[in-house]
């Protein structure tokens, strides 16, 4: 009897594993050193350029419908003259136990083999559940059919879908770049080198605060940075197991 129960438990364990894979090929992660980050927002524009994020205009911003997949949060604490201003870049945390994946009824958001929490725009029916369940407020919705004034549309990245009205979207860890580099490595019959894949934000970050890499590779830069004693994750107590690791800012 107990054997049967164990078997069921084992089954359930598999089932509960995000994405329902026995194991993942990679664990892509971003380490953000908040002590390096100076809040310059280069990453934000880089993300706009790479991922075809629409510009929503003044009214859109007023309505809080900005498409900043990556946002720099700014907190001002204290009273004059002891003021502390703190910055932190927040993007999709690519949670291992992602609440959004539970919510989506149509599997538009799910875990892929690379350990990424991906969004399939074509499957999305727009129930907003993922965005509501997301504790990090990183999901963005296509409220309208956004247009680019010609010829601004010529800049659109052909590697990234231009999303249609009514679908949810979010930071993908620049999955098109991950795919591109992996394919190239496959063609060359070699392994992907650490640092070969760079997300748009990590690539442009002037201070080097953002580092992208594979946590499954113990020699990678992110693995080493992630082991830092300054490391923490956002709202770790929610047990979402985020893949974005922050390093604490040194501040007196």
């Amino acid at each position: 009897m107990s054997g049967v129960i164990d078997k069921i438990k084992e089954r359930l364990k598999d089932f509960r594993r995000p994405g329902y894979y026995k194991e993942f090929d990679h664990h892509y992660a971003i380490v953000i050193d908040v002590d390096r980050c100076n809040g310059c927002e280069a990453c934000v524009v880089s993300c706009y350029a790479e991922n075809n994020l629409p510009v929503v205009g003044e009214q859109g911003c007023e309505d809080n419908r900005v498409f900043n997949w990556l946002r720099i949060e700014r907190y001002i604490e204290g009273e004059y003259p002891d003021v502390k201003v703190k910055f932190i870049p927040v993007m999709c945390q690519q949670c291992d136990a992602a609440p959004c994946e539970i919510g989506c009824p149509v599997y538009a958001t799910y875990h892929n083999q690379d350990g990424l929490n991906v969004q399939v725009y074509n499957r999305c029916v727009g129930t907003f559940t993922c965005a509501t369940y997301c504790p990090y407020d990183v999901r963005r919705f296509n409220w309208f059919s956004y247009k680019w004034d010609k010829p601004l549309d010529e800049q659109l990245n052909p590697d990234v879908t231009v999303r249609e009205m009514g679908v949810m979207e979010k930071c993908t860890f620049c999955i098109q770049r991950i795919r591109g580099v992996n394919d190239k490595a496959k063609d060359g019959k070699r392994k992907v080198k650490d640092g070969e894949i760079q997300t748009a934000c990590a690539q442009s970050c002037p201070t080097g605060a953002i580092t992208f890499g594979d946590l499954m590779d113990p020699e990678s830069k992110v693995s080493k940075l992630a082991a830092s004693k300054r490391g923490y994750k956002l709202f770790e107590n929610l047990e979402t197991k985020p893949s974005v690791i922050y390093l604490k800012r040194v501040m007196d």
Binding site: A42, V45, S46, A49, P151, L152, Q155, S204, C205, P206
Partner: peptide, 20 residues
């Protein structure tokens, strides 16, 4: 000078090229 990095203004240069 910039060691592979670029600021927001530099990134946005593309929109000067394709500016309507």
């Amino acid at each position: 000078v910039n060691k592979g990095k670029l600021c927001a203004r530099g990134q946005a240069g593309l929109q000067a090229l394709y500016n309507p």
